[in-house]
């Protein structure tokens, strides 16, 4: 339990430290707002259209493959930690697991899902 308490302390400090700097900067810095300063930076031009542009679906595909790999990691890390306490059989099981994962990656590759179109 203790290491997690230390991490909690780091979290609190990690939030307070930047908060204090921002508050300090707010106190020290001048405040003279005007509409031109408040404008969005667009190389000196007025913004054209809506800010929230349509993104390519490719962003989602990458995030998707990342999610799949991230979950595989949750299964593979315990395997890696326990591996030195297990028999050869564990290697075979992991090969099956990683093989299925690799198949998914190969499928995505063949489908062209990995290419930035």
């Amino acid at each position: 339990m203790k290491p997690y308490a230390v991490i909690g302390a780091f979290f609190v400090v990690g939030l307070i430290l930047p908060l204090v700097t921002v508050i300090g900067a707010t106190l020290l810095s001048p405040r003279k707002p005007n509409p031109i300063k408040g404008d969005i930076y667009e190389c000196g031009l007025k913004t054209v259209g809506e800010t929230w542009v349509q993104f390519k679906i490719q962003y989602y595909i990458y995030a998707l493959i990342f999610v799949i790999f991230d979950i595989e990691v949750v299964f593979l890390y315990p395997w890696a930690v326990a591996y030195n306490r297990l028999e050869l059989f564990a290697l075979v099981e992991m090969l099956i697991f990683a093989g299925i994962l690799l198949a998914g990656l190969l499928y995505a590759w063949r489908k062209g899902a990995l290419s930035w179109v």
Binding site: V67, I68, I71
Partner: peptide, 14 residues
């Protein structure tokens, strides 16, 4: 359950 939730989210969002 977390695994299934992630798979569900991925397909549902697609």
């Amino acid at each position: 359950a977390i695994t299934v939730a992630a798979a569900e989210a991925a397909v549902a969002l697609a």
